[in-house]
Amino acid sequence: MAMIAAIALILDALIGWPDAVYRRIGHPVTWAGRLIAALDRGLNRGRARRAKGALTVIIVVLAAMIPAALIQAWLGPWVAAVLAWPLVAARSLDQHLRAVAVPLAAGDLAGARAATAMIVGRDVTQADTPALARASLESLAENSSDGVIAPLFWAAVGGLPGIAAYKAINTMDSMIGHRTPRHEAFGMVAARLDDVANLIPARLTAGLIALAAGRRGMAALRVAWRDAGSHRSPNAGWPEGAMAGALGIRLSGPRTYGDRVAAEPWLNGTAPDPGAADLARGIALIRRATVLAGLLLILGALA
């Protein structure tokens, strides 16, 4: 199974998911998204919304796992590895963060704000350089877990069915796992299942960041261990804390969502705010952590 994960990562790193392919057939995540949206429209009404949300989770996960299991059983691990390729997002994550880093380094706040708004949910219309760098680094750290390490982990554990199920769960969480009046009950099972699915990968990501940080590795682990529990998410605080410790900056803290200010606690709060150079350092750090993950997968496949 480690071979499936390793090949998927290599293919993603080399070519990503080409725009021409996306325009023609979309992407597996968008296919799952259409099913989730249809079930949300059809079931998220009336009574027993929590039970209907649980039924949605079962339907979506099975819709992802069963075809993946049949393909792997009938066509073998090499085909499974190729089909797992679009479910790893290392190249896409790197491209989205570089789209922020380049204008930020050039002092183009308008361009950096526009690029940051594509990857975070908070209001960045008035954000300065430290706020933009902080938001982008948090997104980079969290999505390195959700979009790269977690899919690789579940591919290594369960092959194509494992990574397909994980991406279905993660997509459900992003679409219906919100504490809003509409999705508080309906999305509860999806949100809790996503927390469970990311429990190990988030901590693995923190460890990989620490390894990639070299001499700052112990600082990365120290901050993650000390501060992750104060994060609003049971998992995101681990890679974000490791990132903060590795770079010697602070992350999280208060942020604005629409007309609401969320008073989030700081990670590594006594350190300075990040700048444009720290965002570039963070991108390089995640690249090294991803390479380490790939090497570990290759070693696992050869063992």
Rank of each mutant, 00 (worst) to 15 (best):
I286M: 14
P254Y: 13
A2Y: 10
A48S: 15
A90G: 06
I15N: 09
A5L: 01
D123A: 09
P77W: 14
A168T: 02
R45H: 06
P274A: 09
A262P: 02
V21Q: 11
P86H: 01
T171A: 08
N143F: 04
R260G: 11
T30F: 01
P67G: 00
A197L: 04
A165L: 08
R41C: 00
Q126M: 13
G282A: 03
G253K: 00
R45N: 05
A69S: 05
L152H: 00
G46D: 03
I25A: 14
G229H: 11
P239H: 11
G187R: 00
D194K: 08
I71N: 03
W74Q: 15
M172K: 06
R24F: 11
A301S: 05
I200Q: 03
M243N: 09
A117R: 00
R215T: 14
A206C: 03
V189D: 09
G177S: 08
L302D: 09
G147A: 07
S145H: 11
H96C: 05
A114S: 13
Q95F: 12
P181C: 06
P161E: 01
L140K: 08
L296T: 14
G282N: 04
A5M: 12
I249K: 03
L132F: 13
I209G: 04
T129R: 12
R192F: 01
L109N: 08
L152S: 06
A236Q: 00
T256R: 15
I119K: 04
V100G: 07
W238R: 10
G33Q: 13
A89P: 07
A155N: 07
L75A: 15
A90E: 09
V124A: 03
P103L: 06
G269K: 08
V61C: 15
A63Q: 10
L140R: 14
L132W: 07
R287H: 15
V79P: 07
L75P: 10
A99D: 13
L70N: 04
T125V: 13
I149A: 12
A165N: 02
A114V: 10
N235A: 02
Q72V: 10
I58A: 15
L109V: 04
P103H: 11
R232G: 08
P103G: 13
A206I: 04
P181T: 07
A293T: 14
A115W: 10
G107S: 13
M243R: 08
L83V: 02
E264A: 15
I71H: 06
M218G: 12
G162E: 03
G282T: 03
A141K: 05
A277F: 05
A20I: 13
A84N: 05
P86N: 02
P18W: 11
L160S: 11
G241R: 04
A5S: 03
G214C: 02
R232M: 05
I10T: 05
A127R: 10
A101V: 12
G300S: 03
R122M: 09
H178G: 01
V21C: 07
L97T: 05
G177F: 01
L247K: 07
H27S: 12
I119N: 08
L62H: 08
K52W: 07
L295W: 14
L75H: 11
G258L: 00
N235D: 13
R215N: 12
I200L: 15
G282Q: 04
L93D: 06
V79Q: 09
L251K: 10
A165E: 10
L296K: 01
R203N: 02
S92R: 15
A80M: 02
T30N: 12
A54T: 15
L152N: 08
